[in-house]
Design a protein around this nucleic acid. Sequence first.
DNA 1: GTCTATACATAGATAGAC
DNA 2: GTCTATCTATGTATAGAC
Lengths: 232, 232
Amino acid sequence: MAQASGGVTRKEKAGGAVRADASAAAPEGGIRRENLRRILTAAEQVFAEQGYGGATTAAIALRAGLPKANVHYYFSTKRDLYRAVLADILKQWLDPLAHVTPDSDPAQALAGYIRAKMRATRDRPVVSKVFAGEIIHGAEEIWGFLTADLKSLVDEKAAVLDGWIAEGRMAPVDTRHFFFFIWAVTQHYADFDAQVRAVLGRKKLTRRDFDAITAEVVRFILRGAGLSLPAA
Amino acid sequence: MAQASGGVTRKEKAGGAVRADASAAAPEGGIRRENLRRILTAAEQVFAEQGYGGATTAAIALRAGLPKANVHYYFSTKRDLYRAVLADILKQWLDPLAHVTPDSDPAQALAGYIRAKMRATRDRPVVSKVFAGEIIHGAEEIWGFLTADLKSLVDEKAAVLDGWIAEGRMAPVDTRHFFFFIWAVTQHYADFDAQVRAVLGRKKLTRRDFDAITAEVVRFILRGAGLSLPAA
DNA sequence: GTCTATACATAGATAGAC
DNA sequence: GTCTATCTATGTATAGAC
């Protein structure tokens, strides 16, 4: 409130980008940070619901609770904002694969990976939908990520699985396609949830539903790799 | 050329919809039919590439090789055109499931279904992408189809599989989710082909690639159901 | 039945007061 | 750093000559 903006004699360059200068006492610690977060969250939802083409900056601003011009202040173009949303998403996309290491038990490691993917699906379905839309429409914006980061990681983890196969610890499958199968099935429950609910005749899937589905998915995929979990 | 359009004294109602009246000798059999086909094909591609929101009637008209106004002559709104494209798609969506009947051999029948789905994926990837986009964004337009036609068909076919399970002819799986798994994996190769190509490091998947992938998919899914094909 | 020209709305983006 | 008012481009849709 008491934000005295006048009287600053120091010259300031226009167009500064990364500067996190919080002159004049930001009361609750970073309006900028807060607004960025609001915009990114809102954008993620609108892009997921409407697609890139169908999303409007007005709708994003509305959901973020900010005026339209404010969105353009932080992201000069709609495409810029879209890229930022994708960058945000990619950061968390690779994490779950950490479960898969050469010395782990195949069934346990893969089950862990699948469960992590299903958990991400349940907790942040919008993320999966934005990602899906991007790939369906050609993946122009994340082509570099797919051909570099994702490809190397898959190559690396596929090699781990190939090792397991060589040791007779799992059935001989095409390991890279095996990852595709895992992604296909897990993401299906985020991206195609409308179809899943329609066919099952459910208005909404409960947490309990999701746990049951996860167990079924794990069983199915492991069996496809000639594995199974101890009955516990 | 010699198309005498004047002199018709017969009164014609405006806004007639379904009339297939080919007055005044259509030389090569149905300009209307031909144009409708061109528009629908073009629209299918543009919707697949850009999404509903990103698609423009101008782009569709351009690809159809017709003036923009002509598109609006046949489909008064963009949404109408979109609905027509979806209707076209839904007609062929259920067909492949015909393979699955109570008296068929489980492995053979399911393999046939999976192969049919993969073939459709390869031959008409755009169809799958339009369908995917529609579901991802809430399936408003095809909700009726999903909850009625698709649901009944799945319920019916799931009952067939439940029968097989009761007879011990396949592993006990949740049969409706089993269909989700099949759709997820098969459609992944149409909808996420960009990701598949990026990770495999291939510019384009050949016909041979596709046959190999299909075989791998069949093996994987059947094994997930405790089945396998005779080695042939 | 076809197509040019155009109306009308809304989109993305910016200028400039605060 | 924020936001009202506005510019310009583009989109959907239509009127009306041919």
